[in-house]
Design a protein around this nucleic acid. Structure first.
Length: 155
DNA sequence: GTTCTCACA
DNA sequence: TGTGAGTA
């Protein structure tokens, strides 16, 4: 975004900054990444950078763990229930043959051998990963109470 | 000083 | 699961 507005997807925070904001260890953030809960940007030298959107995701993840009693595997299951095809033009044959359509152990962005539509794509820029991971809205997303492409929220 | 991966126990 | 070694 070049209009001066804040781009919530722009990777700007180092892992140390995020760890301090969330009051968790740096190692914990690396573990969340290894488990597929988060996809931080990597600089050409391999350093992780997190966006405001990543920070929101992590705050939600922390809430699920500390307040709702979920563990990492539980959150992975939860994320695996996101109907990714709804964000990728609807359920077509490519989606029906994709493991992300019937598997429910991990979010689609960590699934191997995904359909052609998603193969080789950068999941960080995918609307499935970029959706609002608000704990309060998870049910809406999973059950389809709202349409991903029709944001009717009035501000 | 920060962050990286990997290894160790 | 947490710590340290050696590195960039």
């Amino acid at each position: 975004m070049m209009d001066g507005n804040i781009d919530i997807y722009e990777p700007i925070f180092t892992i140390g900054v995020i760890a301090r904001k969330l009051n968790v260890a740096v190692q914990t953030l690396r573990m969340y990444e290894q488990e597929g809960l988060i996809l931080p940007y990597k600089t050409p030298t391999g350093r992780r950078l997190y966006s405001l959107h990543d920070l929101d995701r992590l705050q939600c993840i922390r809430k699920l763990i500390t307040e709702d009693g979920l563990n990492i595997n539980g959150i992975k299951r939860l994320l695996s229930l996101i109907p990714c095809w709804e964000f990728k033009g609807g359920l077509d044959e490519d989606c029906k043959s994709c493991p992300a359509y019937y598997e429910a152990v991990a979010p689609c962005w960590v699934i191997q051998n995904v359909g052609n539509k998603c193969r080789g794509q950068d999941c960080r820029t995918c609307p499935v990963y970029r959706m609002n991971l608000s704990c309060a809205k998870m049910k809406e997303v999973i059950y389809g109470h709202i349409r991903p492409d029709k944001d009717k929220e009035k501000s």
